[in-house]
Amino acid sequence: MHYPLRYRRARSLLYVIGLFWLWLWLGSAALIAGLHHSPVHAVLATYALAVVVLVSIPAAVLAVIRMILTHPRRHADVVPLKPHQPGEPAHWWYGEKAS
């Protein structure tokens, strides 16, 4: 079974992680410097950044693995589904509650 949304979600996660690392490289020091009036807030912000950095590394690795495993096929066949006609019985997996 092919799931194109899993590939796209993994790719989007990699984009978000890449943007975070870019911000971390370019702008996080300004955030910490802006908290100079409260050392407690500066320590909490530094701790939060350290935790997010450590979480982003395995998340990026898992996203790359998911992209490799669910890479979309270029030569896949598209099978159109026939529309449900009113008065026709619903398929058994829809049940009676299908809208």
Score class of each variant (00 low, 15 high):
Gly27Ser: 15
Ser28Pro: 03
Ser28Arg: 11
Ala29Leu: 10
Ala29Gly: 15
Ala29His: 10
Ala30Asn: 10
Leu31Pro: 00
Leu31Tyr: 08
Leu31Ser: 05
Ile32Leu: 10
Ile32Thr: 03
Ala33Ser: 13
Ala33Asp: 07
Gly34Lys: 06
Leu35Asn: 06
His36Met: 14
His36Tyr: 15
His36Cys: 10
His37Tyr: 12
Ser38Asp: 12
Ser38Ala: 12
Pro39Gly: 13
Val40Gly: 14
His41Met: 12
His41Leu: 15
Ala42Pro: 04
Leu44Cys: 10
Ala45Arg: 03
Ala45Asp: 05
Ala45Val: 13
Thr46Leu: 13
Thr46Gln: 09
Tyr47Val: 12
Tyr47Gly: 14
Ala48Glu: 13
Leu49Met: 07
Ala50Thr: 02
Ala50Leu: 04
Val51Gln: 01
Val51Phe: 02
Val51His: 06
Val51Trp: 05
Val51Leu: 12
Val51Gly: 02
Val52Gly: 02
Val52Ala: 09
Val52Tyr: 15
Val52Ser: 15
Val52Met: 14
Leu54Phe: 05
Leu54Tyr: 06
Val55Glu: 10
Val55Cys: 09
Val55Gly: 04
Ser56Tyr: 04
Ser56Asp: 07
Pro58Lys: 09
Ala60Gly: 14
Ala60Lys: 08
Ala60Ile: 06
Val61Thr: 14
Leu62Tyr: 02
Leu62Phe: 00
Leu62Ile: 01
Ala63Lys: 01
Ala63Ile: 00
Val64Leu: 14
Val64Ile: 11
Ile65Gly: 00
